[in-house]
Amino acid sequence: MNMQADLNQTTTYIDPFVDFSFKRLLATEESKPILIGLLNHLFKGRKYIIDIEYGKTDFPGEISEEGGAVFDVFCTDADGSKFIIEIQRGYQKHFKERALFYTSRAISEQAPKGNRKEWAYNLTEVYLIAFLEDFCLPDSPRSEYIQDICLAIRHTGKIFYDKLNLIFIEMLNFVKKPVELYTDLEKWLYAFKHLTEFKKQPEYLNGPEFDRLFNLAKYANLTAEERAMYNRSLKQKWDNKNVMDYAVAQGELKGKHERSIEIALKMVEQGFVIEDIIKLTDLTKEEILVLKK
């Protein structure tokens, strides 16, 4: 029996941070109350959402040479505000640029195809909410798990434009325990982060929205076709993680080897014998002889 089969038999609930599960739990008619509740808890009264409508997730460029965007989840509320909900599992070099590109597509799509003078650039709000599963933004404090970003005047900090918002949820920084869950948002994030660890729905995560979440996330409730889709999505996540882990390991090895060469060069300059350099750096005799030339 393979590893994938073993995991599915011992896991009661599906992993929310794979493509199939993320869409099942946040982007279906059944999951609307889950997403509405999550967004309202995230905005903490700054916005109150009563209903949403899911929209297309594929936004091709206006010309063939222009890049398009494909969102994980895209929806609009009753006020016309646009919400892009994304999951980012691993570090991406230009992640900030990607976030701005995604929001720019949601903004540019608002332009009418006909008479733009009557429109007068009356934009609706655009929000990007991104769950960062296995990495954090390099310049964010480790003590915080939500980065709420808007356009502001640099020297005063006053908000310049409040209709464009980027919200990054750094799951690695969310380390609260059940007894430390004081807000509904903290309960939601804890449920998402630890969903695959539960054997049953815990009492401290109760209520209609949580009941719906655990019901939709239960592996036994998936149809045969849905299980196949989930397994493919899960395998893709594992494969991508293996590639990332290998790249990180290779980078660490390369860094260690480069440091060893730097140390060896200094020892050669100071007249150390080859045997001592080998002991301290783990370099081969051939590598050290090259440095001595």
Rank of each mutant, 00 (worst) to 15 (best):
W119C: 07
H94I: 01
H155A: 14
D77Y: 08
F168C: 03
V175D: 11
Y91W: 10
L181M: 04
F95P: 05
C136P: 00
T183F: 12
C75Y: 01
H94P: 06
E125Y: 10
I84A: 10
G80Y: 06
D139M: 02
R98P: 04
A152G: 04
L100R: 14
P138S: 10
Y91C: 00
Y145L: 11
P138Q: 05
N122A: 10
A106S: 12
P141T: 10
F160E: 07
R98H: 02
Q88S: 12
F95D: 02
F192S: 06
K177E: 14
V126F: 02
I129P: 12
N115Q: 02
H94C: 06
E170K: 06
L189T: 13
L164F: 13
A99V: 03
L128P: 00
Q88C: 08
F95W: 08
L123D: 05
P112F: 02
Y182V: 12
Q147V: 07
E86N: 02
A99T: 12
C75R: 01
G80C: 12
E180Q: 15
F74Q: 12
A130R: 00
W188N: 11
K193S: 07
S140I: 03
D139C: 01
F160V: 04
L137F: 09
L151T: 10
I149H: 03
Q110A: 08
R89F: 01
T183L: 12
K177R: 15
Y91P: 05
E86V: 01
G80V: 14
E133G: 06
S143N: 08
F168M: 06
A78T: 13
T103P: 00
F83R: 02
N115Y: 07
D134K: 13
L164Q: 11
K193C: 07
A106Q: 07
I167F: 00
K96Q: 10
A120N: 15
E125R: 11
P178D: 09
N165T: 09
F160H: 12
L166G: 03
L137D: 07
F174A: 02
I84C: 04
F135N: 04
A99M: 04
R89L: 13
C136G: 07
I84K: 01
Y127F: 15
L185M: 15
L132M: 13
E133T: 06
G157Q: 09
F168W: 03
I87M: 15
E133Y: 04
P138G: 05
T124R: 09
I85F: 02
V73F: 01
Y161M: 13
Y182M: 11
T183Q: 11
I146W: 04
A130D: 05
I84D: 11
E109Q: 14
S81N: 15
T76C: 02
Q110S: 09
Q92C: 01
D77F: 10
W188R: 06
I159W: 10
L132R: 04
A120F: 10
D134T: 01
E180P: 14
D184W: 07
K177C: 06
N165A: 03
T124K: 14
I169N: 08
